[in-house]
Design a protein around this nucleic acid. Structure first.
Lengths: 193, 193
DNA sequence: TTTATTTCTTGCCATTTGGCAAGTGCATTT
DNA sequence: AAATGCACTTGCCAAATGGCAAGAAATAAA
């Protein structure tokens, strides 16, 4: 079983020896998730931390009216986890679903903590991933406040074009904070330019 | 120097012995910040992690047009830090400013890491604070997407009334993602009910 | 291929929010 | 007390976005 993608990813975020990397990677296990299946279901406690080597996923929750709201998209070469449920052991209000067939390497909460304990340097990695997600959310909040829907759309298409390849309009719309109707129009306007 | 508030706060988030608590608290130092002064200035690397015992603060940044956007309010009995700059050692794009005279206990990045190392259980505390902030931002993003300005206002006044005591309208407006004009109107509508 | 189903687009109009400028109220200064 | 400066409010109108329903296009099923 080839864990190169995982090892490369960790290495690019944490400068440690090849030996330690192997040691860390060994505790992750190969995982596949078929298109439309769930990595996490709301109502459960998340117990898996995943490095997504191939594929595409999205997180979503339901608003007070019961509508799906996409909260995040996960391209490959990223870690996928729901911070609050996974680390705080609380019941998740979010779902994480594969939008294409996915392959990756996952580790349980218990094992991850064991690794944090036995490989102190790896804690930095864990923290970095957490902070990274945090920053992404902060920026998104900020964009929601001071960018127009069209600007948010433009930014998304410029930085994450692959989203449009995997997700459907409605899912992207709720992520951008507009209705699918509006997104359709924005798209039209945008294509004129 | 009485560190009771700090000790009580840590204890409420982490079940460890009185002895360990004292040990942790001993590394924090008493800090005061006068009204309108800065705990963090954009352009610098944040090096302090603060437990705010008394007072009220806000974080803000500037949007692309140069306008101030309030990104967070910090009531007392909370920790105050800018995750990305503090933990990743990056230059902050945010300011954190005292909205009233503040008192608290702060610790440097270096010392905090030393504590995480020497008191393993305390790492859980650090992670919990990070996740807590994260969750708060997620919820705010969600609210920006699927709540009207009036609902966001109603929620804020119900859960954080003290904000209205310390912050001015314009600061609250940018936090809620509306103009001060609109907030003024929302407020008027709201008071009718 | 034909039919059925789902996704996306569009027209029409309503609602929300913004922009600007004038006005009011309160506090500080002189 | 008068003048100045902020913070906040309000009126008027414009711009952005939403809601609904019908239609077009794409996709899946028969």
């Amino acid at each position: 079983m080839n864990k190169e993608p995982l090892i490369n990813f960790i290495q690019s975020n944490l400068p440690v020896s090849k030996q330690i990397l192997e040691d860390i990677a060994q505790h992750f296990e190969y995982t596949t998730i078929s298109k439309n299946e769930y990595f996490l279901k709301e109502g459960t406690i998340s117990n898996n931390y995943l490095f997504l080597a191939e594929g595409f996923m999205r997180a979503f929750t339901h608003d007070t009216d019961g509508n799906e709201v996409t909260t995040y998209f996960y391209p490959n070469n990223r870690v996928v986890f729901e911070a609050s449920s996974f680390f705080m052991r609380t019941i998740s209000t979010e779902n994480i679903q594969a939008l294409s067939d996915c392959k990756g390497y996952s580790i349980t909460f218990e094992k991850l903590n064991m690794l944090f304990h036995s490989v102190p340097a790896f804690r930095e990695f864990g923290r970095a991933m957490l902070v990274k997600e945090f920053v992404a959310f902060k920026q998104r909040t900020l964009a929601m406040i001071n960018k127009s829907a069209e600007e948010r759309y433009a930014n998304l298409i410029n930085t994450n074009k692959e989203i449009f390849q995997y997700a459907q309009l409605k899912q992207i719309a709720s992520y951008l904070g507009v209705t699918d109707t509006s997104l359709s129009r924005i798209r039209k306007e945008f294509s004129k330019k």
